[in-house]
Design a binder for these strands. Structure first.
Length: 351
DNA sequence: AATCGGACCAACCGCCGCGTC
DNA sequence: CGACGCGGCGGTTGGTCCGAT
């Protein structure tokens, strides 16, 4: 089908490699405003020098609301092992059973840890009490797509495959290996240390809706409303107003006055469940919290040369060295969204 | 202190399935 | 019915980190 068709984009004109915080922010801003109806056209419209596929991947795996970052729990690992037994390398299908986890992440975990762990356990205990299970696992490794594998399912996830037992054979589990959230933050400024990504915004007033078709289970504590907003908790509807976007950038100009602890990620998450949040989102304080949180998430927060990891403010108006010029969304003369370079003077705030 | 090798993971690549014309 | 465009998926790669030597 479509043999010989042109590549999805001009490889010579697209940027490759890790995404910068500015690119993340630009992508988020665009999707918040317009959704992602056409991935191929999105980079151009959003002013990104990226392949549409790259944008999609970045959004799906890291930026979309509900993406869970950080450690895989033993239960999650167990689910992956069980599902891989029955589904094989159908990572997307496995991911659909793990709320907030992406196929890419699951694939990585499997390839780097779980597969080796199973092989190791098989070698350590080839004829042990778990012989049936282990042989089954072995079969899955050599023939992952075999539908006739002899996996013995267990309805009780806590007493099924003994991943905890496996853990004892390992010097360190996946979860333990990933217990360095701060490092991860430094390494990948756009990733949060753990928990669910809180880029969740109000997509309700976009014509092309952002894909929030997660199941109720997948949303975990969140519930997607018909209008695309998230219900966090019992009775509070959270809306993060899109109209913040322009104000958002305006406020960036006056960031120097922000109190350092005003909007830490935890504070924002806590605020999601607080009362009157919907009204508060219209206030400058809430917008600032959201803004500050995004900055934290994207590494626009002051770091080594512009503050420290305790959220102390940048000195002398400088922003982090990891920052680069970003495009500030504006409305042009025709009322169309456009972008202006921001900040006006590179790496300097107008304080 | 320097080097090396393994582990980890974000991102890219290419193929495939499906919808549309 | 075939061509085409697009999104999605799975395999693979390349960069970075970190522990061992």
């Amino acid at each position: 089908m479509g043999r010989g068709r042109a590549p999805c984009c001009d490889k010579s004109k697209v940027k490759k490699g890790p995404w910068s915080p500015a690119e993340d922010l630009r992508l988020i801003t665009y999707i918040q405003k317009h959704g992602h109806g056409n991935w191929r056209a999105l980079p151009k419209q959003a002013g990104l020098l990226r392949c549409g596929k790259s944008c999609r991947l970045r959004w799906i795996n890291y930026l979309r609301p509900g993406v869970k970052r950080g450690n895989f729990s033993p239960e999650e690992e167990e689910i992956i092992i069980k599902l891989h037994e029955s589904l094989g390398n159908k990572w997307s299908k496995i991911a659909s059973h793990l709320p907030g986890r992406t196929d890419n992440e699951i694939k990585n975990v499997w390839n780097t840890s779980l597969k080796k762990r199973l092989v190791m356990k098989r070698n350590v205990n080839p004829y042990g009490d778990d012989q049936t299970k282990e042989l089954s696992m072995t079969n899955s490794l050599s023939s992952p797509n075999s539908p006739s594998s002899s996996f013995v399912s267990n309805d009780n996830p806590n007493t099924g495959l003994d991943t905890h037992g496996v853990r004892e054979n390992m010097a360190m589990t996946v979860s333990e290996q990933k217990q360095e959230p701060l490092k991860m933050l430094q390494k990948q400024a756009s990733s949060s240390s753990s928990s669910v990504s809180s880029y969740a915004s109000d997509f309700s007033n976009t014509s092309t809706q952002v894909d929030v078709t997660m199941t109720k289970e997948e949303m975990g504590p969140f519930e997607v409303q018909d209008n695309g907003t998230y219900d966090v908790g019992s009775d509070e509807l959270v809306e993060i107003p899109l109209e913040c976007d322009i104000d958002f950038w305006n406020m960036l100009d006056s960031l120097g006055t922000l109190q350092p602890n005003e909007a830490q990620p935890g504070a924002f998450e806590a605020s999601q469940g607080s009362e009157n949040l919907r009204a508060e989102c219209d206030t400058e304080i809430e917008c600032r919290k959201w803004l500050k949180y995004l900055e934290n998430e994207l590494g626009l927060e002051a770091t080594s040369d512009g503050g420290d990891h305790n959220n102390n403010p940048p000195q002398n108006g400088e922003i982090s060295a990891c920052n680069e010029m970003v495009l500030k969304p504006e409305i042009d003369d025709q009322g169309m969204p456009c972008f202006q370079m921001w900040p006006p003077s590179p790496h300097k705030f107008d304080v």
